[in-house]
């Protein structure tokens, strides 16, 4: 660990890993609850075209990826909201078009090897200016989660109830898609576009094995995200492995551990709940309800 801190690029990469580990699962919690687990994957495919465009025009690939990923996310959301049946195929067309377009564009640039690093992540290529961009984007993403969290929670819980509460459902839907797209761009340098959405989904899947609430799931997922990102990066440095796959495999290991642990926790909880299952606790029976509260908190 101390050895890898001697390298500038590793210090930068570690800060980046922490930022990615925090943001991806935070957004991922909403994305999973909304059943959009493949959204990040699709945006990742589309973002590749942005990288190709960035390389081709000589501007920043990260900027290109950001612009195209955000546009792609808006397109996905529009397609999803518009039609129930045709959206599936339309999304597939968009994804494959983005991937194929990206490969052709980067190839035209003679960037075959850099393509590999964008697809599966690479840490040695990360510069300090990349880090500043990623840090700024991470602040934006976490800010959105903080400001809109309550509304996004209700939206992901039940869209009709959200609408009947007067929430701007269309705006919030686009917001969550765009936030996911920005997160993909944040994470793509370290993890790679093809695996980026794994860090949005897998830590959440792990956390929800052992938690009871939405907020606790999100916080635990963020912890799991940081843990797997940092340790995956360390492993990739130590054993000369690609960082993206190392991070994702560690996140999956956490998921397996949580799934095993969760089974035990749930069984114990179910047994306890069996003892305290409230009977007909109507509003007229307050003393009894209070007694229950004591049993549960005690």
């Amino acid at each position: 660990m101390t050895e890898m801190l001697q390298f500038d690029f590793m210090r930068i990469a570690l800060v980046m890993a922490v930022l990615i580990g925090l943001t991806a699962p935070a957004v991922g919690t909403f994305v999973v609850q909304r059943r959009l687990s493949l959204l990040g994957d699709g945006v990742g495919h589309i973002a590749l075209t942005g990288i190709g465009l960035g390389l081709l025009t000589g501007s920043s690939p990260v900027l290109g990826a950001l612009v195209v990923a955000v546009l792609g996310a808006v397109a996905i959301e529009v397609l999803r909201a518009r039609s129930r049946s045709g959206a599936d195929v339309a999304l597939a067309l968009l994804f494959y078009g983005g991937l194929a377009g990206g490969v052709i564009l980067t190839n035209a640039q003679g960037g075959g090897s850099s393509l590999q690093s964008y697809l599966f992540g690479s840490i040695s290529s990360v510069s300090a200016s990349d880090l500043y961009v990623v840090a700024a984007l991470a602040v934006v993403v976490l800010g959105i989660v903080a400001v809109f969290g309550r509304e996004l929670f209700l939206l992901c819980q039940d869209e009709e109830v959200a609408r009947a509460a007067g929430l701007p459902v269309r705006f919030l839907s686009v917001l969550i898609a765009v936030t996911a797209a920005v997160t993909v761009v944040i994470a793509m340098r370290a993890i790679g576009l093809l695996l980026v959405s794994a860090l949005m989904i897998v830590p959440v899947a792990a956390a929800q094995q052992v938690t009871r609430g939405f907020r606790s799931t999100m916080l635990l997922a963020m912890g799991a995200g940081v843990l797997s990102a940092v340790s995956g990066l360390a492993a990739s440095f130590e054993y000369d492995l690609p960082p993206g796959p190392s991070i994702v495999l560690l996140a999956l290991a956490l998921f397996l551990a949580a799934a095993a642990g969760g089974t035990v926790v749930r069984r114990r909880r179910a047994r306890r709940a069996g003892e305290v299952v409230p009977g007909p606790a109507g509003p007229g029976e307050r003393p009894r309800v209070d007694a229950e509260a004591e049993v549960i908190s005690g």
């Binding site: 994305v31 609850q33 819980q157 109830v161 609430g213 799931t217």
Partner: peptide, 25 residues
């Protein structure tokens, strides 16, 4: 508005309190 059921969604759990508190939005 009280819908017919609590949708499962993607399976992220919510506590009873979290669901009820969202009624204040």
């Amino acid at each position: 508005y009280v819908p017919q059921r609590l949708p499962m969604g993607g399976g992220v759990p919510s506590t009873v309190r979290e669901v009820v508190a969202s009624g204040r939005i």
